[in-house]
Amino acid sequence: MDQSVAIQETLEREENCIMAVQCDVLFDDTTESRLLGLVESANEHRIFIYTHRRMAITADDVLLEAIIPISVDFAVVTVSSPEELVVVADTRVRISYKDEELDLKLPFGSNSRLFLSEVNKAWTQVLDYQ
Score class of each variant (00 low, 15 high):
M1V: 14
M1Q: 12
A6I: 04
A6F: 11
I7P: 09
I7V: 15
I7W: 12
Q8K: 10
Q8H: 11
E9V: 11
T10Q: 13
L11K: 11
R13E: 15
E14M: 03
E14C: 04
E15M: 12
E15A: 15
E15G: 09
N16I: 09
C17W: 10
C17E: 08
M19Q: 11
A20C: 08
A20Q: 05
A20V: 06
V21W: 05
V21L: 09
V21I: 15
Q22S: 15
D24I: 13
D24N: 15
V25E: 12
V25G: 12
F27E: 15
D28P: 06
T30A: 13
T30P: 00
T30S: 14
T31P: 02
T31N: 10
T31E: 13
E32C: 05
E32M: 12
E32S: 15
S33P: 04
S33H: 07
S33W: 13
S33F: 12
L35N: 04
L35A: 10
L35F: 12
L36R: 13
G37A: 09
L38F: 10
V39I: 15
V39G: 05
E40W: 11
S41T: 08
S41L: 00
S41N: 08
S41Q: 04
A42E: 12
N43R: 06
E44D: 09
E44S: 14
H45M: 00
F48N: 08
F48S: 05
Y50Q: 10
T51M: 14
H52Y: 08
M55L: 09
A56E: 03
A56I: 05
A56T: 04
I57S: 08
T58E: 13
D60R: 10
D60L: 07
V62P: 04
V62Q: 05
V62H: 01
L63T: 14
L64Y: 03
L64D: 06
L64R: 12
E65Q: 12
I67M: 15
I68W: 02
I68K: 13
I70A: 00
S71I: 00
F74D: 01
V77G: 02
T78L: 01
S81D: 04
S81E: 07
P82L: 09
E83T: 14
E83P: 00
E84H: 02
V86Y: 11
V87Q: 14
V88W: 06
A89C: 12
R92S: 13
V93I: 15
V93K: 10
R94P: 03
S96C: 12
S96H: 07
Y97A: 02
Y97P: 02
K98R: 15
D99E: 14
E100L: 14
E100N: 15
E101Y: 06
L102Q: 11
L102F: 09
D103C: 06
D103W: 01
D103R: 07
L104K: 05
L104R: 03
L104Y: 06
K105C: 14
L106S: 01
L106A: 08
P107Y: 02
P107W: 05
P107M: 03
F108K: 11
G109H: 06
S110V: 09
S110W: 01
N111H: 06
R113M: 05
R113S: 10
L114R: 08
F115S: 02
F115Y: 07
L116Q: 03
L116V: 03
S117I: 00
S117F: 03
S117C: 00
N120P: 00
N120T: 03
A122R: 00
W123A: 07
T124A: 07
V126I: 12
V126L: 00
V126H: 04
V126C: 00
D128E: 09
D128I: 06
